[in-house]
């Protein structure tokens, strides 16, 4: 085990995770933006580009395995690699949620909008912010920042509640809206899951710093 080589590889892994994180964040933002604008072309691109994110995940996973096999990391070094292995799964699933939103946009096609989208973009902003901050906490090893992210999930849950009630009202009032309302509900659910997965990343940061597994966020969904 060479600490110099191990440090170099750990830094490389961190850079890779940040790169993957920015790819995922971009996919989420673009998917919601495309939904707002009913941009089918961008939605198709997001679906296509999801494979790049999948590949990135496998590439990082392979690097982790190689570091474990060749550098024999222990203690915090080992926890960092375990954290990365978990985080990339969450990131990859977040990208799948973004892909799901893009598919919903294709399903909506040129159906007339049910309502102006306000809360859903707001949920996307919050979820992306949580994602960004969770990766910042990973870099700065700031467990307090990580705990705040977990607390912020309540806000996303509250917005999801609101969207759910509103869409339910549409469906009850006019059954012809059921399809479109259901698609939007799926969208909101995807965003709610993205926020949950950001808290998973934050929990991994806490584990990395303290060595203890904590379930800090008990999402209502």
């Amino acid at each position: 085990m060479s600490p110099v080589e191990l440090d170099r590889r750990l830094r490389e892994l961190q850079t890779d995770v940040l790169l993957m994180g920015s790819m995922v964040e971009k996919a989420i933002e673009r998917s919601v933006d495309a939904l707002k604008r009913r941009d089918l072309e961008t939605s198709r691109q997001i679906i296509e580009q999801d494979t790049q994110i999948d590949h990135k995940r496998f590439e990082i996973e392979e690097k982790c395995i190689e570091v474990i096999a060749t550098q024999e990391p222990v203690a915090r070094d080992l926890r960092q690699i375990v954290a990365v292995l978990n985080i990339i799964v969450d990131l990859e699933r977040m990208a799948d949620h973004a892909e799901g939103i893009a598919k919903i946009t294709l399903l909506l096609g040129d159906h007339p909008p049910l309502k102006p989208l306000i809360d859903i973009p707001r949920m996307a902003d919050l979820a992306c912010d949580m994602l960004r901050r969770s990766l910042d906490a990973l870099v700065t090893l700031d467990q307090e920042a990580a705990r705040r992210i977990c607390a912020d999930d309540d806000e996303v849950d509250a917005l999801y509640d609101q969207v759910y009630r509103e869409l339910l009202t549409f469906m009850i009032t006019d059954p012809k809206t059921i399809d479109r309302a259901t698609y939007l509900l799926w969208t909101a659910h995807n965003l709610e899951r993205i926020a949950d997965r950001s808290t998973n990343i934050a929990e991994r940061v806490i584990f990395l710093v303290t060595g203890k597994m904590e379930n800090t966020n008990v999402s209502r969904y």
């Binding site: 222990v74 203690a75 915090r76 080992l78 926890r79 060595g211 203890k212």
Partner: peptide
């Protein structure tokens, strides 16, 4: 000790 040592020197 090998996953979460309590003393910085051990780590």
């Amino acid at each position: 000790l090998f996953t979460n040592p309590q003393d910085r020197r051990t780590e």
